[in-house]
């Protein structure tokens, strides 16, 4: 198969960029939804009295990860149909696990003596969560969010298969018409999007990291 440079450049410059906003939507909306589900769930299962459920919740999120996004769409197809909505749904399920896992790990590794002292000083449980547990957990939670972001950007390609559009459209067009130029162009944009998103989230993470951890990192 010979490589058509002109087609490749045309795909890079004219065809692919149009899919970027769509693809970002397909990645960021599930990411946002996944954070808003996984973080409260993680907070809930790390409360005293619910800790015994932590393993079950993790099992649920793990299951979410083992099912391929396409299979999720297939399972929910009778209820949700094809298209943008089911794609968002499947991607959200997919992004849940890394965020939930890192959040549960982060909150439950806040040292018990710190929690104990904070309560003993007269902080309310809400104070302890907002002013002690979450600030100390944020760097680890953000690590999970970054993983999920990269995962979602690349998995969102599959959305095109069920009519969810995005950068997948150009990649699958390339596969269907045996045009590696299109596949390559789409893949490069997916890679760039992943890297840029990851870097942006790293900047956010840096601002959320408590000062003592920054110092520990730069040492």
């Amino acid at each position: 198969m010979n490589f058509d440079m002109e087609l490749f450049l045309q795909a890079m410059i004219h065809r692919s960029p149009g899919y970027i906003p769509e693809h970002l939507q397909l990645s960021l909306i599930p990411l946002f939804l996944a954070v808003s589900i996984a973080l409260p769930a993680a907070v809930l299962v790390t409360r005293p009295g619910y800790r015994q459920y932590a393993a079950h919740v993790m099992a649920f999120f793990n299951a979410g990860q083992t099912i391929p996004p396409l299979a999720v769409i297939a399972v929910f197809f009778p209820f949700l149909g094809l298209g943008y909505g089911p794609a968002l749904f499947a991607l959200t399920i997919y992004a849940l696990l890394p965020i939930a896992r890192s959040s549960i790990a982060a909150i439950s590794t806040v040292p018990e003596d710190v929690r104990d002292a904070a309560l003993g000083m007269g902080m309310t449980p809400v104070d302890v969560l907002l002013r002690v547990e979450l600030p100390l957990s944020l760097p680890t939670i953000m690590a999970g969010v970054k993983t999920a972001a990269v995962l979602t950007v690349s998995t969102a390609v599959l959305a095109a298969l069920v009519g969810g559009k995005g950068m997948g459209a150009i990649i699958f067009a390339g596969i269907n018409f045996f045009r590696p130029e299109l596949v390559l162009a789409g893949t490069i944009y997916i890679g760039l999007l992943s890297i840029i998103l990851e870097r942006l989230l790293s900047v956010v993470e840096w601002f959320l990291t408590p000062p003592h951890m920054k110092a520990a990192r730069s040492r």
Binding site: P111, D113, V114, A117, G120, M121, G122, T124, V132, H212
Partner: peptide, 20 residues
């Protein structure tokens, strides 16, 4: 309980200072 605890000093072996 939180109001009560604010009137009682509490010191533990592992200190438990807030690291951040």
């Amino acid at each position: 309980p939180p109001l009560l605890r604010r009137t009682i000093g509490y010191v533990i072996q592992q200190v438990g200072l807030l690291p951040h």
